[in-house]
Design a protein around this nucleic acid. Structure first.
Lengths: 130, 130
DNA sequence: GATAGACCTTCCCATCATGGTAAGGTCAAG
DNA sequence: CTTGACCTTACCATGATGGGAAGGTCTATC
């Protein structure tokens, strides 16, 4: 299977497949006589794994670790720890964004929203309170 | 006031001040005879404005607009609309991250977390369900 | 007045994941 | 044999930021 088919089958663009290979995230695959990369079902499976992990927001480093754990059939302990660490990261991001959102929404609710030039949002941004 | 002092007074690094100037977000400031950029209190005020807006997660484009509205003392209507649009963006991001987090946490809770190689997290990532 | 150290200038490079493009080789169908 | 779709490598761009080099300037101290 050529790279295009592998890309379509995995949802990872050919461009990114080559990139992942170049940074060592994925092993180099066999080449045909013409130099084309040759993928098999197992390779596509691994690509889909990476794709899913990216969708989950795992970092490339984390994905590298997950791939290793997956390939080596290592204890689920480590995987669980990694997943929970990522959950904590997500929690932090969510909390941060929620704070921003609430502050901004509060400012907006204080804003007349009419044609008057006074605007609590701009006043806050300009540092009157900061 | 030189760029270093402006940086310290605004919380924007000298590097970024020059960058903002280079992309046209900030106007070029006067130069001293020696070529050094010369900032006044108003400039620092604007820098602090940008800094706050970045902290709020506004994009550079949005900040450009906000700066314009601020400078021109335009109706608060537009500012409010911009802020509410950003609130919606934040809501979407938060929702997306929360979904990820919940899925991941669910998978982790299904994971034995012991030494067994079976791991629902890896199984999900590998696409068994997808 | 010389020297040191802190500051400024511009310019270039690197990040990270991704996309685009160009120049050239290969293959399959008509 | 040509056409078009595919592959290869290699380079450039993104956006916000940091790092650093090479060189000019200012200030304080000796």
């Amino acid at each position: 299977m050529n790279i295009g088919e592998a890309a379509q089958g995995s949802g990872v663009t050919a461009k990114m497949i080559r990139y992942y290979e170049s940074i060592g995230l994925l092993p180099g695959v066999k080449r045909n006589q013409n130099g084309y990369r040759a993928y098999d079902a197992q390779d596509v499976h691994r690509l889909r794994f990476v794709r899913r992990a990216r969708d989950f927001g795992f970092s490339m480093d984390q994905i590298e670790t997950l791939l290793g754990l997956w390939a080596q059939k290592r204890p689920s302990q480590e995987v669980k720890a990694l997943a929970l660490a990522h959950v904590r990261e997500l929690d932090e991001k969510i909390e941060h964004l929620t704070e921003l959102r609430n502050t901004l929404k509060h400012l907006a609710s204080c804003c007349h929203g009419d044609a008057r030039p006074e605007c609590p949002i701009l006043e806050d941004l300009s540092g009157r309170k900061a």
